[in-house]
Amino acid sequence: MTEEHSEFVQRLAAAPSIETLPPIADPVARAPQNPPRQIQEKFVGASYATAYAEAERFVDAAFDAWPGGPDAPDTDEQLVLDFGSGWGRITRMLLRRFRADQVWSSDVDSEMTTLLHSTLPGVNAVTNAPWPPTVFAPARFDAVTAFSVFSHLSEEAHLQWAGEFARLVKPGGRVYITVLEEQFLTLVAGSQAAVAADEADAFAVNLAQVVPDALAALETVRQGDFVYAGGGGDDDGPRARSFYAWAVAPRPWVERIWGEAGFSLESWTPTGVLFDQAMVVLQRRLPEPPVVPVHRPLVRRVGGRVKRALKRALKR
């Protein structure tokens, strides 16, 4: 009896077969293919050596404060998430120290997830929604990296993702993020002054639109409050301006928000030391030990009764 196959089945069966399986990504042994320059620059503002050098500084600094230390005996069992991975430059740097099966990459852009599947086979690349929760189990990761992600998220998005990271990171694990500081708003103020003087180039014209009054926003940040600079421009694919643009998060605000989420601020490397953002290391706090009620020893209570009985007897 000849089995009848649907047209779709026949089309799948007629497709070419690959000759060999693609090798699992291992940048130490062989450099993976790069995405086109325009893709690199769109997500990073730089490309090739400049982009990778910045990523190397970030991951090297992260490993100075890695859970258990960079040479911990259980590093081979750790899992790390590169959140907002884009085209995967931070992921490549993580693959310098971890096997592909230890690394997860997550991005809101499904085209970038597809790109990672193509250029970094073996890495666990997934697409996340703009808002939590993710598909990951609680306490799944020993560490999470998020380079140039929280420097773009709105206040509500920042709050929600801080809470989600608290769910995903093991107690004692760490989160490595970058944030914009007041220097960004100083740059915007300069752009607004250039526009007012009719001396602005195209970049300055665009930058001048992100907040109505950069000097007022700068004062807000200096008072320790968050500023979301979401003006100008249109949505960029899945990155809607309602939650993704430019965000300035001063240290007191970060320490309070992440503290409420369950993290301790371990270190803050200011803007200009490593790159044009501040690098923040946050540690997931260990659970508080249960409070054991203290009861007065029984012997004291018994002794007290005996003393009272003796006093009553002596009064008779």
Results as ranks from 00 to 15, higher is better:
Ala125Leu: 01
Val123Trp: 01
Leu115Cys: 14
Arg97Met: 03
Ser105Glu: 10
Ser110Pro: 06
Asn128Lys: 14
Ala100Lys: 03
Phe98Met: 02
Leu94Asp: 04
Met93Val: 05
Leu120Asn: 06
Ser106Ala: 14
Gly122Leu: 10
Val103Trp: 03
Thr91Glu: 01
Val103Asp: 04
Thr114Tyr: 03
Ser118Lys: 13
Ala129Gly: 14
Met112Ser: 06
Arg99Ile: 00
Val126Asp: 02
Thr91Ile: 01
Pro121Phe: 14
Arg99Ser: 03
Thr114Gln: 04
Ser110Ile: 10
Leu94His: 07
Leu95Arg: 10
Arg99Val: 00
Glu111Arg: 14
Val126Cys: 07
Trp104Asp: 01
Ala100Trp: 05
Leu94Glu: 02
Val103Ser: 05
Ala125Ser: 03
Ala100Asn: 03
Asp107Ser: 13
Thr127Asn: 11
Val103Ile: 14
Pro121Ile: 13
Asn128Met: 11
Thr114His: 01
Asp107Ile: 07
Met93Arg: 15
Leu120Cys: 11
Val126Asn: 01
Met112Ala: 06
Asp101Glu: 11
His117Phe: 13
Val103Leu: 07
Ser105Lys: 15
Thr113Ala: 03
His117Thr: 10
Asp101Gly: 04
Leu120Asp: 06
Asp101Trp: 08
Pro121Thr: 15
Met112Phe: 08
Ser118Leu: 05
Ala100Val: 07
Asn128Ser: 15
Arg92Pro: 09
Glu111Cys: 03
Leu94Trp: 09
Gln102Ala: 13
Arg96His: 11
Gly122Phe: 11
Trp131Gln: 12
Leu94Ile: 08
Gln102Asn: 09
Asp101Arg: 10
Thr119Asp: 00
Gln102Ser: 12
Ala125Met: 02
Thr119Glu: 00
Leu120Ile: 07
Glu111Asp: 08
Val126Thr: 06
Ala125Trp: 01
Thr119Ile: 06
Met93Gly: 09
Arg97Gly: 02
Ser105Gln: 12
Asp101Cys: 07
Leu95Trp: 04
Arg92Lys: 12
Arg92Gln: 14
Ala129Phe: 05
Ala129Lys: 15
Glu111Pro: 00
